[in-house]
């Protein structure tokens, strides 16, 4: 197996173009597991850890956060908890401290697992994945179009993920995941929520309860409709709204029974997570007045 270690982004794109059978490796927390279990034996690895650009993040004038694909979960937690609170909360739930130091948001997207913990929040905030190829240059894929199936994505074979683009938070965000132990656990199901007061919009997305991460569109619309007059008054959440929101989120899921949990439990848990997180986020919004 060849080990390619490009030192710059153009070199990385060139390596990607020239080696169609190669697998990019960032933190390696997914790639190395596959290699160790002999599930995959690529011709070459392209090590992205020497590409400095991937480890940077910045905020544009319009408030868009450009998060390099190689920024680790640990850094998201410590550096982005104000700009991207939902993603920071999701990062806190990933694996163990060691995994959070190695693992990256770009790698999470690269694996495109339905259980990837970054994904629900990225959907809820309306993020885009910035990708690039040497031949065609960069493009931005809305996260809602990024996941195409179980562990497949819209990334072309000659492309690399350069960054994630997400709007700086303008309201409270939440992430919650259910697992059968209290840390270091793959989501049985998960839920991301973002309030966008300036747009009167509620983002809501589901993880680990469908073949791909999924926005709960009906639930989003319902919540936006119920809150339409409350954004400015910051009044109390009307009774029953959170519960109905939860039901709609559960209805959006397409879960299966597997060794981690039953479909019925996943739906039930989603209704609870959605109800609770909406309540927490709204309370936070009211307190912020």
């Amino acid at each position: 197996m060849e080990f390619l270690a490009p030192g710059s982004w153009p070199d990385a794109l060139a390596a990607r173009a020239e080696n169609p059978g190669a697998v990019p490796i960032a933190g390696g927390t997914d790639v190395m597991v596959d290699l160790n279990f002999d599930r995959h034996r690529p011709d070459a690895l392209i090590d992205l850890t020497r590409v400095g650009e991937l480890r940077e993040w910045s905020v544009a004038e319009d408030g868009t956060v450009r998060l390099g694909a190689g920024v680790s979960f640990a850094r998201v937690m410590s550096e982005l908890s104000a700009l991207a609170p939902g993603l920071a909360m999701a990062s806190r739930t990933v694996g163990s401290p060691q995994i959070r130091v190695r693992g990256t948001v770009g790698g999470n997207l690269g694996s495109a697992s339905p259980a990837g913990d970054a994904h629900p929040v990225l959907l809820a905030v309306g993020a885009a994945v910035e990708v690039e190829s040497a031949a065609r240059g960069p493009r931005a894929i809305p996260v809602s179009e990024f996941f195409t199936g179980v562990k497949t994505s819209a990334l072309e074979p000659d492309e690399l993920i350069s960054a994630v683009l997400l709007p700086a938070a303008t309201g409270p965000q939440q992430f919650a995941k259910v697992g059968t132990r209290n840390a270091m656990v793959i989501a049985v199901t998960s839920f991301g929520l973002a309030l966008h007061p300036e747009q009167g919009r509620v983002g809501a997305a589901i993880g680990s309860a469908a073949p791909t991460p999924l926005s709960a569109v009906d639930a989003q619309d319902y919540a936006a409709g119920e809150l339409v007059d409350l954004w400015s008054s910051r009044g109390e959440l009307p009774g029953g709204v959170a519960a109905r929101f939860g039901e709609l989120v559960a209805a959006a899921a397409r879960p299966i029974d597997d060794v981690r949990g039953t479909a019925a439990y996943r739906r039930h848990a989603l209704s609870v997570l959605a109800r609770r997180t909406l309540t927490w986020a709204w309370d936070e919004y009211r307190r912020a007045a």
């Binding site: 806190r92 739930t93 919650a176 995941k177 259910v178 697992g179 209290n182 840390a183 609870v272 609770r276």
Partner: peptide, 15 residues
């Protein structure tokens, strides 16, 4: 860390 569900942020005391 003291809650059921732990750092996965599933409850702040509810239930």
């Amino acid at each position: 860390r003291a809650m059921p569900g732990g750092v996965s942020n599933t409850t702040h005391g509810e239930g």
